[in-house]
Design a binder for these strands. Structure first.
Lengths: 211, 211
DNA sequence: GTCTATAGAAGGATAGAC
DNA sequence: GTCTATCCTTCTATAGAC
């Protein structure tokens, strides 16, 4: 029985992990192959041995990070539970993920904006129009009650997700504006509190809209 | 009387304008001096003649863009009008600015995150703690009525500004998710509609909060 | 002030030994 | 599979003519 050398996977995994960190922190353009090699504790040549080029290494990393961002959102919004429960569950789950991956939002927003080619992989991962239809079908009664017309659903969706995502994208700006958020622990506390603040805020707004 | 050569200012201005465009679109790391020179219709050497280095050119551009982003926000939030009016006015004014400068949010979020040195200029431009105090003093009655405790003010502020800023930072992601937003005109319509949606949403949420 | 030409550094990629 | 050495391109920056 042929046994895969332990070192094979270990090395490739170490490279991938290092690359993920560096790309996430610096973005594609500012990331350096040398830094990735240093963090993986191997030399530059090995990066090319395993991934051929910076572009290819990046694309591998990007796909994984894209999934990490969207898979959970999608699965929550597709669930068959009340809209109110869905909102609560979304903030709980997504904020937890983002606390573990605080650079994810800014990284993805940027790379997608600057590199339209990456679009292909996205369309497969997130079928928004499908999600939108499911949501509108599942919750047509509730949304009508809240006075949300079909055309306004994008406005609502963007609002909901921005309340979770934006603080992470802006966290360095926030940190320098509010002394209280200086360290990571304070910021994480802020985001923990935000789970309830955001759900309550959204639910309150919906229950009190002008129709 | 010594007359400043017309060409002096014209060239410097053309460089500055070109640099603004390129830095805003690509970010510092991916921006190329050659591209700036091409857009300004001069050659690379002149860039260095006027601004010495890429870093210095960038910093000049950055300071202007930072002001463009925050000056209006600050002036609106410092005004002596009711909280409700302030919210409406903020969305009206800031969304107008951002429609004219759609790349501003992502550019600033990024560069500030990646380059902590830029912080200095920011602290002068936006004195958040001052603004927060003014807001809490001016609106203590209203905020109490809405059940917003002093500690929750950051949660509210981040929510308010994110509703205007986030869609611009995420607009390429949104464009590829929703076919309706494909072109700029549709996106701008979305943001025009968002002025009312956002103010109504925030006001409704505040008036209906659990205390 | 503006240009051409080129220096000099950095970074991605590959050859070849082990 | 992994390393050292090196190539080659790209990019910032400067020298020097006009």
């Amino acid at each position: 029985m042929v046994k895969t050398k332990n070192t094979d996977l270990q090395t490739q995994e170490r490279i991938f992990k290092a690359a993920t960190e560096v790309f996430e922190e610096k973005g594609f353009a500012a990331a350096r192959m040398q830094e990735i090699a240093d963090r993986a504790e191997i030399n530059k040549a090995l990066l090319h041995y395993y991934f051929r080029s910076k572009e290819l290494l990046f694309e591998a990393v990007f796909q994984v990070l894209l999934k990490k961002m969207f898979e959970k959102i999608l699965s929550v919004f597709m669930m068959d539970i009340s809209f109110e429960k869905k909102i609560k569950l979304y903030y709980e789950e997504h904020i937890n993920i983002l606390i573990k991956n605080p650079n994810l939002p800014l990284f993805l927003l940027n790379e997608i904006s600057h590199n339209p080619e990456l679009v292909q992989g996205i369309r497969e991962t997130l079928r928004y129009s499908e999600m939108r239809d499911v949501i509108y079908k599942q919750h047509s009664r509730e949304l009508r009650k809240y006075g949300i017309k079909k055309g306004e659903l994008p406005q609502l969706m963007v609002t909901v997700v921005s309340m979770a995502i934006f603080p992470f994208a802006a966290r360095n700006v926030m940190k320098m504006m509010m002394e209280q958020l200086g360290d990571n622990k304070s910021f994480n506390n802020f985001m923990q509190a935000r789970k309830d603040f955001a759900s309550d805020f959204v639910i309150a707004a919906l229950k009190n809209r002008k129709k």
